[in-house]
Write a protein that binds this DNA or RNA. Structure first.
Length: 563
RNA sequence: GCGCCGUUAGCUCAAUUGGAUAGAGCGUUGGUCUACGGAACCAAAGGCUAGGGAUUCGAGUUCCUUACGGCGCACCA
């Protein structure tokens, strides 16, 4: 049991539930005040007494024991001191119990409920640029975090595989393309053709492109052969990147899949009387909600991206009966999702409230916005390979005799790219620079991995020493800090899920690594002063390594044993 | 013009969702190894939390307002 729960269960405040009390318990800014604290100000109105008096009365009424050894009332705060002896015991029980299930910090709070996560969602024929990194690693991290909390998770790559751009691509290929060149150059060769078409296109060529797209739709064999070839080249390409980033999906159903599912949804909109005609298009009027109309069908009768999203939402609800459906998409599309969710709500679907737009910030370059058409882009595979090259170079210098250097460089280099994208609040905009992306110093995954390697190295030296088995121990300040940091991990994972914010986990990794390094500097582990202490510190080191490894794994980052 | 988001140390960012003296990293300056990995650790300097108002025991956090920046606002995705 964790300390917050322990304290809450032994407190009685009239009119306040145990769960609410637990939520209110905070960690004081200074350990000398106490280890946990309950601010009593909120009770003042209810009880018609001053917070200071309430805190004093609660302090007087609290029975201390071996776990909570002292309570004190200071300025309206009720402060609790946790007994240093026996402190580790409680943590260790939690830790080992969880280790035997799915790992420390895991939980069954999801109860098998389903969460759909729409993320990464690549466009056919377009290479990955740095702007795609956020949705990919954010989605991947949320996927693993929810799974760790006992949810059934469905990862969906909503492929952009429908639209006139594919007609353009076919036109471009037929004009300038060459089978061998495309096979050799892969997706970048395709992209070059597309870029060229956009810069050289005349009215005539645009018309031809529209015709080519119509051919794809109507099932023309040659057009579809070409399109499917582009599609498979794209999927092969993105899978190599997903493999390196440790990302996977349960579904690759793209926009084209929903074309024949649009009809019934449009019918339903009609039935509900939501569809009106405006400027020749079929729309849902959202003026009453301060939004522009949601266009369902264009004036030529064709569907739009929004229509396919609508059909996809219904399909997902029917197929997976999700408890939540997340869309990990940049905030650029705030309005689109607000409209989409509102339309579903207006259709009378109660699950409209379970749709969540997980919005994140935009990436730009130091000299402005990226532009594929202008060729002003940073490709993701370049960033990854430069990061891995840098890791390899440092490894060759610092640890030239290390076995398996190639794999370790991959773990370190790729980890740095992922971690960099997950460390800050997702809503923040990012100005990409290689300097920052390839930074291995300070608050980085490299620091955390290095800390793990240190821990692993110590553990290797302690092979024969048993793990902790319940002895009473005096815990010093450094050790205590570490136990406290480790104890915070389960709540950290839950908070990350609640706010759809993996950075919470990334922050915890760095904080905990810092605390461990201080402990490591100040406390002898291998040559501890006594056997009891050696067992205890080994166990603490073991728990740190296991927790950090689990936390990084949630983010998609591996931990090398040596580096 | 309207809407949404952002603004915290020189730079990049945190802040337990309204709590006690706003914390880290980078950079700068100065230190620490005859102990387990120096990709480490310690210390110093650096803040009117963009400006102004309001709410209350208490505001970086909530509300109003101004400024600056980003994004969006009808048949692209």
């Amino acid at each position: 049991m964790d300390y917050k729960t322990y304290i809450a269960e032994r407190l009685t405040v009239e009119g306040v539930g145990k769960e609410e009390l637990r939520e209110m318990i905070a960690v004081p800014p200074d350990t000398s005040l106490g280890d946990y604290a309950l601010p009593c100000f909120r009770f003042a109105k209810l009880m018609r007494k001053s917070p200071a008096l309430i805190a004093e009365e609660l302090a007087a009424g609290y029975r201390t024991d071996g776990v909570v050894t002292a309570v004190s009332a200071v300025n309206g705060y009720l402060n609790f001191k946790i007994g240093r002896a026996g402190l580790f015991k409680a943590f260790w029980e939690d830790f080992t119990a969880a280790e035997q299930k799915c790992g420390y910090g895991s939980s069954d709070m999801g109860g098998g409920k389903t969460v759909c996560i729409d993320y990464s969602s690549v466009n056919i024929a377009k290479p990955f640029h740095i702007g795609h990194l956020s949705t990919t690693v954010l989605g991947g991290a949320l996927y693993r975090i929810f799974r760790y909390l006992g949810y059934n998770v469905v990862g969906i790559n909503h492929l952009g595989d429908y639209g006139t751009q594919f007609g353009k691509l076919i036109s471009a290929y037929r004009r300038w393309g060459d089978r061998e060149e495309v096979e050799k150059g892969g997706i970048h060769a395709i992209n070059d053709l597309y870029v060229r078409f956009n810069s050289e296109a005349t009215e005539e060529m645009e018309a031809e492109a529209r015709e080519n797209f119509r051919l794809i739709e109507s099932g023309d064999r040659e057009a579809n052969e070409l399109f499917n070839w582009f599609k498979s080249l794209t999927l092969d390409y993105v899978k190599t990147i997903y493999d390196r980033l440790h990302i996977s999906f349960d579904s690759y159903l793209g926009e084209s899949f929903y074309i024949d599912k649009i009809g019934p949804v449009v019918e339903k909109l009609k039935e509900k009387g939501l569809l009106t005609e405006s400027r020749g298009a079929q729309v849902v009027d959202l003026e009453a909600y301060g939004m522009s109309p949601f266009i369902v069908l264009r004036s030529d009768g064709a569907s739009l991206y929004a229509t396919r999203d609508l059909a996809a939402a219904f399909y997902r609800k029917e197929t997976y009966d999700f408890d939540k459906c997340l869309y990990v998409v940049a905030y650029q599309q705030n309005l689109h999702f607000k409209q989409l969710f509102k339309v579903i709500e207006l259709m009378g679907e109660p699950w409209a409230k379970d749709l969540v737009h997980v919005a994140y910030g935009m990436v730009s370059l130091e000299d402005g916005a990226m532009s594929t058409r202008k060729g002003k882009v940073v490709w993701l595979e370049d960033v990854i390979s430069r990061s891995v090259e840098k890791a390899a170079a440092i490894l060759a210098e610092k640890n030239p005799d290390l076995a398996g250097r190639t794999d370790i460089a991959e773990q370190v280099g790729v980890g740095a790219v992922i971690f960099g994208a997950l460390y800050n609040n997702k809503i923040k905009d990012i100005v990409f620079s290689y300097d920052k992306a390839l930074n291995f110093d300070g608050e980085t995954s490299v620091y955390v991995q290095y800390t793990c390697a240190r821990a692993a190295s110590v553990l290797a030296k302690l092979g024969g020493v048993p793990l902790y088995s319940g002895e009473e121990i005096d815990v010093n300040a450094r050790e205590f800090e570490l136990v406290k940091a480790l104890s915070a991990f389960p709540d950290t994972v839950k908070e990350a899920a609640k706010n759809y914010e993996p950075s919470t986990v990334a922050r915890w990794c760095v904080d905990t690594a810092q605390v461990f390094n201080k402990f490591y500097i100040d406390c002898r582990i291998v040559n501890a002063e006594s056997e009891t202490l050696r067992i205890f510190r080994k166990s603490l080191t073991h728990a740190t390594l296991a927790s950090l490894t689990a936390a990084l794994a949630l983010l998609g980052i591996e931990v090398p044993e040596k580096m």
